[in-house]
Design a binder for these strands. Structure first.
Lengths: 333, 333
DNA sequence: CCTCTGCTTGTAATCGATTACAGAAGTATA
DNA sequence: TATACTTCTGTAATCGATTACAAGCAGAGG
C-alpha cells in the first residue's frame, strides 16, 4: 500500500541505505545519486513512516504541551509561540487539556509518556508538581511555563510578575492615586503570589497602608472576578482604584460594574494584567501589565529543544534547571 | 534501558507472544498465566513502546486536529469537545495551527500524514479543499467541522447557520425592527454564505428590502469588524439594527461604537453569532445565535472514531460522506 | 602495474511489539 | 490407556527505517 524506502530504492536503482542517507541529509552521497533519489522520492510519492524511524532512533519528533484549559487566550497564545518554534524544527505538538484538574493532568502525562514524546512543556494547573516526576523518570525533558510547582525541579519560563505589578502600581501612584483594592487568584499559584508581592511592595515603598478589607482572593475565572468585585463594592468604604491580577478576573469584575452601574462604580479605575484583544474595550481600565505571551511560548520551546539536544548528545550529568524571567510591559488605554 | 516485552516475558517465565496477548486483552490466556504476567508488568515497570506497536499495526492511537488559529474561543471550544471524546478512547490529539494560511494548512497535513495519525478533524481555513485529498489517498479518514470546502468530499459537522440567522432576524422583526444592516465574513466560506442566506431569506419572507449599501463583507477578524462598522456608520442613512455574522466581527464593531459614541451610535442594536464568555458584556447586543460548539467537537470525534472502526473492520466500499447539522439556539441579553 | 587512501554504496542486523502457524498440554470419551 | 478435540503457549517472521561494517571503486604515488 504505502510507499516505503524499499520502493524508492528499487525505483532509483540504489539500496535502502542510500535512500535513508538522502532522507537524513547525510553528506557522504554523490550529488548525482542524491538527485536521482530525490527524483524517485517525488515520483513515487514517498512519505516516511515516522513510527518506523522512532522505533530505531527512539525519537518521535513530537512534544507534549499540557495546559490547564484550551478556551483561554493566554494559554493559547503561549501555545502559538510553542508551535511557531517547533513547527520549523519539524516537530508535532500533542496538545493536552488538563481540565483544571490535577488528576486529569496526571492522566495526560501517562498518555504522553506512552506516546514517547521527546519532551513536554507544561503550564501547571496547581502548585502540586510531584506527579511530573514520572516524566523525568522516563528521561523526558520538561519545561514549565507561567507557574512554578512544588516537589519537582525543571526548566521554567516565567514572567517578571513582581516588577510588572510593581511598575503598574508605581504608575498609578504617580498620577495621584492613594488607595487601592486588590483582586487576585489563588495564592497557591506562584504567579499570583508574585503579583500580590509586587502590589504590596509598591504600597510599602510609597508609604501606603495595606487594607485587608479591600484585598480579595479567588480563583482565576470570570465568575470569581464578578463575585470579588461585588464583595469589594459592598465594603463600607470601597476603593476607587483596583488592581486585578488576571484578565479573566478583570472581565468578571467589569461585568459586575456594568450590570450594577451607579455613582459609586462610575469612578472606578482598574489596573489589569494581560493585554488581550478585548482589553481595550472593557472599560474602567486605565493601565495593563502585558506579558510577552507568545515570547514565553517560543522561549519554552527553544529551551526544550536544547534539552532534547543535550540528552541525545551524551548521557553525562545534565545541567541544572534553568529559570528564565521575561519582562512585562505597561500599556495605557 | 527501557523495559520491553522481552524483559517482562523473562521475568514471568513466558514468551513475548503471551505478554503481548495479555497486553491486548486476548481472551485465550489462562487466568493463572495472565495474572502472573500482569504481576511482572507491574514489578518491572513496563510501559509499552507505541512506536513499535504502530509499526506493526499501522494504528498510532493519535488523531490530528487542524484549526485556522489557536487563539480563538470558538475553535478551542470545539477542540475541547474533540478532546473530551478522544481522551476516553485513549487517543492523543495532535493539534495543528494552520495560521489562516492554506499553505501552512497543506504543510501541517503533510506532518500529520507522516506522523501516521489514524484520522483527522479539520476546521478549514478557506473554501479550497483539494489539498485534503492527500489524506484520503493515504487512507486517513477526515471529518470537517463548521465549514465545507470545494474539491473534497468528507464527513462534516456543521451548525444550522441558515435557520440560526433566520430565527434571530425573525425575532428582531417581531419586535418591530424594519431596517437591517449586515456585517459578515468572506462569502467564500460556507458558514458565512449560509448566515447571509438566512438573513436574506428573513428579509424576503417579511417583505423587507435588501439595501446593498448597508451590507458589508470582510474577513473574520476584529479589525475587519471595526472597519466595516465604521463604513456602515459613514453611510448616508445608517441602519439602527445590524446583524453581525461572527463574534470577532462583533467585537470589532463594538469597539468602533465605543470609541466613536454619538447620538447616532447610541441607538444601535446588534444581533450576533456565538455566545462567548464576553458576549454578555459587549453592549449594543440584543440577541445572539449560539452554536453548540462543544457538541460539534464531540460529534466530529464520534464520527471520526466510527470511520476508523469501519476502516479496520474491512476494506469494502466505504459508506458515502455523512453530513450532520446541529441546531443553534437563541440567547437574549 | 600494484598498492594505498579516501570516497560512495551495499549488506544485513536491529529497534519492540504483533500474529500466523505450529506444537504442547489438557479434557473428554470410549 | 488410547484417541480426538480443545485450549493454551511458543517460535519465528514481520512492520519500515537506520546504521555498523564491509566492499567497491577511483585516482595518487611508487
Amino acid at each position: 500500500m504505502a510507499v516505503t524506502v524499499k520502493n524508492v530504492a528499487l525505483h532509483a536503482g540504489v539500496s535502502t541505505a542510500t535512500v535513508s542517507r538522502v532522507l537524513n541529509d547525510d553528506p557522504g552521497i554523490r550529488p548525482a545519486t542524491r538527485s536521482r533519489v530525490i527524483e524517485s522520492i517525488k515520483i513515487t510519492g514517498y512519505r516516511m513512516n515516522k513510527a518506523a524511524r522512532s522505533l530505531k532512533t527512539s525519537r518521535t519528533g513530537t512534544v507534549g504541551l499540557l495546559v490547564p484549559e484550551l478556551v483561554n487566550d493566554f494559554f493559547m497564545t503561549v501555545a502559538e509561540g510553542v508551535e511557531d518554534i517547533l513547527r520549523t524544527e519539524g516537530y508535532g505538538v500533542i496538545l493536552c487539556n488538563a481540565n483544571e484538574d490535577v488528576r486529569y493532568e496526571a492522566d495526560r502525562i501517562s498518555l504522553l509518556i506512552e506516546q514517547c514524546v521527546d519532551g513536554v512543556i507544561i503550564i501547571p494547573t496547581s502548585s502540586e508538581g510531584s506527579h511530573f516526576s514520572s516524566l523525568s523518570d522516563a528521561g523526558i525533558p520538561v519545561v514549565m511555563v507561567d507557574r512554578m510547582v512544588n516537589g519537582f525541579k525543571a526548566d521554567a519560563v516565567l514572567a517578571d510578575n513582581i516588577n510588572g505589578a510593581y511598575s503598574a502600581m508605581q504608575n498609578l501612584i504617580s498620577t495621584g492615586c492613594r488607595r487601592f483594592g486588590f483582586i487576585g487568584g489563588s495564592q497557591e499559584l506562584s504567579n499570583f503570589r508574585e503579583r500580590f508581592e509586587g502590589f504590596k511592595r509598591a504600597l510599602s515603598d510609597y508609604g501606603i497602608p495595606v487594607e485587608k478589607d479591600i484585598i480579595k482572593f479567588g480563583n482565576v475565572h470570570i465568575d470569581s472576578g464578578y463575585n470579588l468585585m461585588k464583595e469589594l463594592m459592598s465594603e463600607a468604604n470601597p476603593p476607587e482604584n483596583v488592581f486585578i491580577a488576571n484578565y479573566f478576573l478583570q472581565v468578571g469584575a467589569t461585568k459586575f460594574l456594568i450590570e450594577n452601574s451607579s455613582a459609586k462604580t462610575a469612578s472606578i479605575h482598574i489596573a489589569g494584567f494581560d493585554d488581550m484583544s478585548l482589553s481595550s474595550i472593557l472599560g474602567f481600565s486605565s493601565i495593563t501589565v502585558s506579558q510577552p505571551m507568545m515570547e514565553m511560548g517560543r522561549k519554552a520551546a527553544e529551551m526544550l529543544l536544547e534539552r532534547i539536544e543535550e540528552q541525545s548528545a551524551l548521557a553525562s550529568a545534565p545541567p541544572p534547571p534553568r529559570l528564565v524571567r521575561l519582562k512585562t510591559t505597561l500599556i495605557k488605554h
